[in-house]
Simulated assay, not measured.
Amino acid sequence: MHLHYLGHLPPDDPLDGYLRFDIAPQLGVHRTPSGFRVFQFDFCRDVYLYEELGGAFRVVGKFFPPGRRMAPGLVRPPTETEFQNLTYLHRLGLNNGSFRITRPLGYNPWLHCVLVVDHFDGQPLGEVIHQAIRQDRRNRLFRKLSALAEFLAVLHNRTAGDWTVDFSHPYDYNGRLIESLVEKRGMARSEAEEFYHLRENWRARTCMWEDRRVLVHGDATPSNFKVGPGREVMVFDLERMAWADRVFDLGRLAGELKHFFLQETGDPWAAEPFIGHFLWEYCGYFPDRRDAFRSITRRIPYYLGITLLRIARNAWVDWNYRRRLLEEAKQNLRAIP
């Protein structure tokens, strides 16, 4: 994650007072801060890092500015949703031991719906993956994936409900991805129909509907996790947390691993040892590990496939690599149990 230095926060900015008098005391700062340096994250124009001039603390501010259109189905700003999600996970006691979930320090609807959370100094998971590929630090990636598998297993198992998965949501999401690829990236309608046919085949499988719903992270990509010493896992960006199939998270991360290795090596099988390791480690938190592994790996191809579709629709993906992603997505979506 790269930061761009923007200067000092003006003292007459209302956010300055909010950080001084509402946020700083929660971080154990009993003197009044003298001011703040401001940095912008390169991945989003509405996310900033605020650093107290004396180095006492750093926090992240996420905004939802006036006039910004909310995504279909949303009834409140995503920053408010994330504040509530983070508060709930902290109340569940998930922020303990080696698990660190970013702390919700404040939500202020009067300051462009800003959400303020604490900042983690760990290493982004994406860097760990790149080091495994480029520097052959494979064992370290295996260890970090084990730690992440434990966190997701604890999150999912602790929140498992009594009602079953509603596959209509990931089914509809698949359709939106397909239409986005047609309308924005020029995918042929004939190819879209092939993806729609595969989607229908998955809908008819009882295994896609029978597991219990759990709370999922909702955007389990490497950019939303950092790692520290040992098994420490740092978790953030939980605005998309939802009740869903646990494999939604597992397939998202598996698809991202496949993408990282495919993009760097050109080998569609290069990520398989890491994907298999991650899933096997996750299943170690169930009474019958092998039975859990069989159940999860039946559903993984669908969620991995739609993750590849999600990546393929990005504007930064060139035509040749988009074709590779679409072909890999088809291969996975054809693996119907």
Rank of each mutant, 00 (worst) to 15 (best):
N157Y: 02
M70Q: 11
M70D: 05
R68F: 13
P78L: 07
H169E: 13
L111C: 09
H112A: 12
G126K: 04
H130A: 15
E183H: 11
R140A: 06
D162T: 12
E179N: 12
P65A: 06
E127D: 15
R100K: 15
I178R: 10
I133L: 06
S168E: 15
N96G: 14
P124N: 14
G93M: 08
E150G: 11
A149G: 06
N95R: 01
V165C: 07
R69M: 07
R158F: 01
R143D: 15
I129Y: 01
Y88Q: 08
W163H: 12
D121H: 15
L86F: 03
A132C: 11
V182L: 06
E183A: 14
S146F: 03
E191S: 15
R100C: 11
A71S: 11
L177T: 01
T164C: 14
D162N: 13
G67M: 06
G186P: 04
P65V: 03
P66L: 04
R138K: 13
K62A: 06
H156M: 05
A188H: 07
Q84N: 10
Q131P: 00
A147H: 04
R100P: 04
V116Q: 10
H130E: 15
V117M: 03
A160I: 02
F151G: 02
S168M: 14
F151D: 02
R91D: 14
K144L: 03
V117K: 02
F142C: 06
L92R: 11
L141T: 05
L94K: 04
R103H: 10
F151Q: 01
T87P: 01
R176V: 08
I133W: 00
H156A: 04
T159G: 13
M70W: 06
R69Y: 06
F64E: 10
D118M: 09
E82L: 00
G126R: 07
G186C: 10
W163R: 10
P109D: 03
N108F: 04
D136S: 10
N96A: 15
L89N: 01
G122D: 12
A153G: 09
A147Q: 03
C113P: 02
N95W: 03
G93Y: 08
L152M: 09
R185G: 07
L86G: 05
F142R: 09
G73C: 08
N96M: 13
M187R: 03
G97L: 14
N174S: 14
Y173A: 07
F151T: 01
L141C: 07
L155R: 00
P65G: 12
G161N: 02
I101Y: 05
V154L: 07
T102G: 05
G67Q: 06
G93Q: 09
R103M: 09
